[in-house]
């Protein structure tokens, strides 16, 4: 395990969601399910974060904000799309200003379904994201040594 996966910090953003998945993301960080025992801390600064938890089907105005947060994050980084709205647009996929899921704006690594997403499923998704983060950190290290 590389350093990044020992205590990954998350940044959470609500991109046009109904708030159901957001309160479940916060509930996963609270004593009920406690992601903080893995060393995960919720931060507001994109440059401090390793994992980007996005909820919500993105609307036209929000796509620039999501793109900016993703661009500001430092490599290696992972994106987890939480909830049905973030995976595919959900029940709003035919609304006139909805793009239909976060993968239309930024590349997504893990999809977690559920309406609203269950904290247990979210923990499964974060654990898979940690594997991907580990691989990316090692690849980055190898490239730096080789170059």
């Amino acid at each position: 395990m590389s350093f990044a996966t020992k205590s990954p910090w998350v940044i959470h953003y609500d991109a046009s969601s109904c708030n159901g998945c957001d309160i479940e993301v916060l509930a996963a960080l609270c004593p009920g399910f406690d992601l903080e025992r893995f060393g995960i801390v919720n931060t507001g600064n994109p440059k401090h974060a390793d994992i980007f938890l996005v909820t919500g089907s993105v609307n036209e105005r929000n796509q620039h904000v999501v793109k900016q947060i993703y661009d500001q994050m430092v490599e290696p980084k992972v994106v987890v799309a939480c909830g049905i709205c973030a995976c595919s647009g959900g029940i709003f996929h035919d609304c006139y200003n909805i793009l239909g899921g976060v993968d239309k704006v930024i590349p997504v690594d893990v999809y977690v379904p559920g309406c609203a997403v269950r904290p247990e499923a979210l923990i499964d998704g974060v654990v898979q994201a940690l594997d991907i983060l580990d691989q990316r950190a090692k690849a980055l290290e190898a490239k730096r040594k080789g170059a």
Binding site: C87, I91, P113, A121, Q128
Partner: peptide, 29 residues
């Protein structure tokens, strides 16, 4: 990745073959 688990399909099915399994769908890549 599109089902919102509302359960409306269960009420309209004429043969009652649809049901809700309590285990959630898993996360995947």
């Amino acid at each position: 990745y599109r089902c919102v688990q509302c359960g409306y399909c269960i009420t309209v099915c004429p043969k009652k073959c649809l049901s809700m399994n309590p285990h959630y769908s898993e996360a995947a890549r």
